[in-house]
C-alpha cells in the first residue's frame, strides 16, 4: 500500500520520513528508544542532518496570573543517533535508513527561568505528568535549497513505582529534617529566683 503511495521522482533532492507522528508513554528513570526511518525517492544520494526541537518547552512563568518571565525546559535527555547520515538514492520506505531517538527520562528536569532583564536562574524540579513533551525530529538536506521533513513525537510522562517511592522518600526526608531541627532547638533556661 505504502509503495503505491510513495512514488520515486526524477529529481536531485528528495527526502521522506516515517512515522510522521507517534505518541509514547515514558516513565522517569527509564530509557526508551524510538525508531524513525528516512528514505530518499530522488535519483541522487542525500546528506541528511538531524536535529531535535521541543515545541512546548518554553512556557510563561506566572505568579498570581502575572507573567514574570519564561521557563525553558531542557531536553538534553533526548538524543538523535546519528546526528547526520547519508540516505541513498531511490530508496523506498522499506529500504530507508533507521535513526534512533534515545529518550532517557530523568527524575529531575533542568529548567531555566528567564526574567525580562536577561537575568536567568537554573534549577531542577521533580518531573511530573504535566511535563509532557511535544518533540519534533527534523531531517534536513540540500545545500543552496534546504528541504526538510519532520516527525512528531508526543511524550507522555507516566508515573511509575520508582517515581512514587522517591516522592514518598523525599516527603519523609523533609518531615524527618523538620522534626530533627525542632527537637535540637535549645530549651530556654528558667530563671532562678
Amino acid at each position: 500500500m505504502l509503495l503505491l503511495l510513495v512514488k520515486p521522482v526524477m529529481a536531485t533532492e528528495g527526502l521522506g520520513i516515517g512515522p510522521a507522528k507517534l505518541e509514547i508513554d515514558v516513565s522517569p528513570t527509564e530509557e526508551h528508544l524510538v525508531y524513525i526511518f528516512l528514505f530518499n525517492p530522488s535519483d541522487q544520494d542525500s546528506d541528511v542532518n538531524l536535529s531535535v526541537y521541543c515545541a512546548n518547552c518554553v512556557q510563561d512563568f506566572k505568579i498570581l496570573g502575572y507573567a514574570l518571565g519564561k521557563v525553558n525546559y531542557s531536553v538534553d535527555f533526548i538524543e538523535v543517533i546519528p546526528s547526520s547520515l547519508l540516505v541513498e538514492k531511490n530508496t523506498s520506505v522499506f529500504e530507508g535508513e533507521y535513526i534512533v531517538v534515545s529518550i532517557r527520562m530523568p527524575l529531575f528536569i533542568k529548567k531555566e527561568l528567564r526574567f525580562s532583564g536577561n537575568r536567568s536562574i537554573f534549577y531542577h524540579t521533580l518531573i511530573s505528568s504535566i511535563d509532557d513533551f511535544d518533540i519534533r525530529v527534523v531531517a534536513e538536506t540540500g545545500k543552496i535549497m534546504k528541504i526538510s521533513v519532520v516527525s512528531y513525537i508526543k511524550i507522555n510522562v507516566r508515573k511509575n513505582i520508582v517515581y512514587t517511592l522517591i516522592t514518598i522518600s523525599l516527603i519523609i526526608l523533609f518531615v524527618v529534617i523538620i522534626f530533627l531541627a525542632k527537637s535540637k532547638k535549645p530549651k530556654s533556661r528558667k530563671r532562678r529566683r
Binding site: M1, L2, L5, V6, V9, A11, T12, E13, G14, L15, G16, I17, G18, P19, A20, K21, L22, I24, T29, E30, E31, H32, L33, V34, Y35, F37, F39, P41, S42, V93, F94, G142, M145, I147, V149
Partner: peptide, 20 residues
C-alpha cells in the same frame, strides 16, 4: 535502566516524502 524498544511495523504507520 533496561531499555524497552518499540518495534515498528512500517506498513501500519504514516509516512510522507518531499522531492524538489
Amino acid at each position: 535502566q533496561e531499555s524497552p524498544t518499540y518495534p515498528m511495523n512500517v506498513s501500519l504507520i504514516s509516512v510522507y516524502s518531499l522531492t524538489i
